[in-house]
Design a protein around this nucleic acid. Sequence first.
RNA 1: GUCCUGGUAGCUCAGCUGGAUAGAGCAAUGCCCUUCUAAGGCAUCGGUCGGGAGUUCGAAUCUCUCCCAGGACGCCA
Length: 557
Amino acid sequence: MDIKKILRNDVFEAFNQEILMEQISIEKPKNSEMGDLAVPCFVYSKILRKSPNLIADELANKLNKDNYEKVESVSGYVNVFFKKEIITNFVLEEIIDKQEKYGENETGKSKTIVIDYSSPNIAKPFGIGHLRSTSIGNAIKNISLKNGYKVVSVNHLGDWGTQFGKMIYAYTKWGNEQLVKENPITELSKLYVKFHEESEKDPTLEDEARAVFKRLEDKNEYEMSLWTWFREVSLIEFQKTYDLLGINEFDSYDGEAFYNDKMDVIVDELKNKKLLVTDQGAEVVYLDDMPPALIKRSDGASLYITRDLATAFYRKKTYSFDESLYVVGNEQTLHFNQLKAVIKKMGYDFADNMHHINFGLMLQNGKKMSTRQGKSVKLHDVLLEAIDMAKTYIRDDVTNIDELSKQVGIGAVIFADLKNYRTNDIEFSLEEVLKFEGETGPYVQYTNARIMSVLREKDLEKINLEDTKISDYIWNIIMKLYEYPEIVEKAKQSYDPSLIAKYAIDLAQNFNSFYGNEKIISEQKNQTNLNLLICKSVSIVLKESLRLLGVKAPEKM
RNA sequence: GUCCUGGUAGCUCAGCUGGAUAGAGCAAUGCCCUUCUAAGGCAUCGGUCGGGAGUUCGAAUCUCUCCCAGGACGCCA
């Protein structure tokens, strides 16, 4: 049952061929007191050459009364109130029947979508900035699965490039094996910071680092052994953070280094297609409306885009994707535009199915955080603080304190990261992340835990609306529940997890309003049963929403 | 300098395929635990939707222009 479609059909029939189906727009009134849906009649005014008010009056009179409780004409709008019993019955039965499958659809049937996300850089701290790629990517993965897609998740580790020339150079010159063994990432990132401090004074260090990277790319033994070591210790460190986040099921961990031996073919093809031009010693592809893309450095070493080209072709060949997503920050917009443009110039249309899922920067004091200056905040530390904070809230009758505080603390961090639209920059504030009241993850979790408590040891019977009252509190919940499948679909189309987060907050607010103002367990048997069915349905949808975002839903808190 | 983003309540943000009195949360103030979890509910306070012009019956939403902030602009990723 699609109430919008029902209304649209009724309106179409009422107009009796004078207005096309496509011209009929249905919207949701600003205020639920005004109605469930509304038909604005202003656009028909010119066609029918009548005033909107008059059209609305006539339309309201003609609308088939079977489906509606009330149809009103208010200053050019036709406001429609559906029969609450019919919708309530439908929505609750649907959810109780489908359970956590409610909201699933098949738009992605037999389609594959590759999602590249998280992708931390080896030998650098897993910073708070990387949380964004990780949580957004993970949520888009879950949302895509819910929409019926087959998903390949790729953690495209940043394990190659001139940065390793810098790192190896710095370690060789100032490093201490013992210290690195004790505290790998901390020590290595210190060396990385030192390198940049020193190269400020002596710019020739940059050339030294490039030379070291060139040796690494040529598989020189000394450089390779250090690289392997750095990579291993980094992965062990990262795993700790992934474990805390509860996000670690990647289908592939092929990082940049994996594409080492897959670049030459692409470069040759570029040459054969006469796209590669030598410019100031470097190999370049000229592009329209964009700065040229640098494919090879003047010393012959590869660059970021060279590896990304190899990656794109490899993914197309290996997974034959319908969509390929790159969950990477805003600042790389130009890079991905260039990447797509080069592939298009080579004559491949699959570039149109590659999407840069950009997101805003984590700012500190209004500025970008810099790993080079050692200023990034470690995600792991933030997570631990959030868990500590969660502990201070816990009630005495809870047994699994550690697990619960982890679920709540981590949930707060992930939810805070996802609730705002992707591309907005976020001023990182620990204080803000550690708030567990209001529009937060814990608020949603708490709402669910409350419901679970009501539901405990209660038997649910089949819905029976005899002698029951569907109050405004209940009706708001029903309409919200009804909206869920549409939100799931929209979230996929716009690659926007914040829609789910906002939805979860709205639903929780609607429920809490009900909970705070009406009694769930009443004297009237059918009413109590209806209320419990609503509780159950809200719980199912809240849990599912949280799951899509990668947030746990504890039963008690 | 060029090109992207963004500018809505003291703060953080919704709303942006044009529509009915611009909505939440936080903060502030006042209520509500002898009633199902107070991480909650209810209420009050709070807005030149960055400035200006244009299109329109109607603009926070579309166009232009200016101002402000952030980011990106060949040998980093």
